[in-house]
Design a protein around this nucleic acid. Structure first.
Lengths: 204, 204
DNA sequence: TCGATTTTGCGTACCTCGTAAGCTTACAAG
DNA sequence: CTTGTAAGCTTACGAGGTACGCAAAATCGA
């Protein structure tokens, strides 16, 4: 596959590598995501990976972008911006909780800016339609994103090597906390940003 | 010193170790904070540290608790709860930005719960005085804490090995973003929690 | 004063990890 | 078939965490 010229045909792809990396990460945790293990998971020697990825950290960055894209793609930003913003928050959080071992990665490896803006285009459009200036929209989205990630970090706890807490009670506790904090922030932005397109209330 | 019984007198203390660890962390970054380097910084062999700390991760957890305590102690929670809450957020953020290499640590190692509650007692009292139920108070404080940490993560960027961005413009950009997001959240909580007119007197 | 006891620090060693260098293999084009 | 090239492999090195057992430095009882 992926035979686009001379030379030995590639059995590896960045895509395939990142796929496998996410699998290993989900299944065995971040510490287990070593080049050797990932290689053997792909039926390949560790050093072979370096033909496609400059180093481990770059691979982690790829994972981050992949997962963030997955999250944003999952959310369909319709309606006025407050709803769309909450929708994004929910989708982001759902992704984080379904990849708990990846949460620290998202925390330490910023999403590629270009990619992030592209992915969030639809969401930002909802602000445009509400007459919210771009800069205010970015502040709101970034703030919510930062809240969601921080919240997930708190919920996931010490993820490199942790134990599972009580099952059900815990879940609803965090859910409730999340919803409350999110409503606070969104409604706060509604007040600050205002819904009047004729005068941008946020001086930047 | 620290001679409280038989045996060879200790030249090391957990305190001293954590102090040195924070120094190394601030000066050289998280990757440079290895047991060997930390040992030599203390004039001691790496393995000696293990008499006082079970392993590296526990040491990192100690650092987290130390720094969080430093932050909270720095903030003097006076006035009504919204002001106190913002004050806590500011102090927390100031600490994080003055220990940028520690931010990922705070993100991945939860603060000890007992210690956290004890440290935040003064802040929670302000909510009590405002007639806010304990649970709402905790939600608000946790949400703000999570926002501050997430914001610091975004600002500090990829901290294990990163480059410095533009100096001045950047600073005020993040400051403004921080303030806006914080006001949104605090004012949102003011609305949600409500400013209960029946203010029960201080009950200690 | 002198062992016995106890606590602390140290030297060595093992295993794992990331990854640099250079070799081999499997294709396509000529 | 020959040659060129991209992709995968083997080996090796240095660094890191830490298990294990020994050495040193105190106090205490006699």
């Amino acid at each position: 596959m992926t035979q686009r010229g001379r030379g030995r045909p590639a059995v590896l792809t960045v895509e395939r590598i990142v796929d496998a990396a996410v699998e290993v990460l989900d299944a065995e945790g971040l510490d287990a995501l070593t080049m050797r293990r990932l290689g053997s998971h792909l039926g390949v020697a560790a050093m072979s990976l370096y033909r496609h990825v400059p180093n481990r950290d770059a691979l982690l960055a790829e994972i981050v972008n992949r997962l963030f894209a997955e999250a944003v793609t999952q959310s369909r930003p319709g309606g006025p911006w407050p709803e769309a913003l909450s929708g994004f928050a929910g989708a982001y959080r759902r992704m984080l909780l379904s990849h708990p071992h990846a949460v620290p990665l998202l925390a330490t490896h910023p999403v590629d800016v270009e990619l992030g803006l592209e992915l969030l285009g639809g969401l930002l459009d909802r602000f445009d339609e509400g007459g919210v200036p771009r800069e205010s929209a970015l502040t709101a989205v970034q703030s919510v994103g930062v809240y969601v990630l921080g919240h997930a970090l708190a919920q996931v706890g010490a993820p490199p090597g942790g134990e599972e807490p009580p099952p059900e009670t815990d879940q609803t506790f965090y859910d409730q906390w999340f919803d409350t904090g999110l409503s606070a922030m969104v409604s706060g932005f509604e007040r600050i940003i205002g819904c009047d397109p004729s005068k941008p209330p946020l001086s930047v």
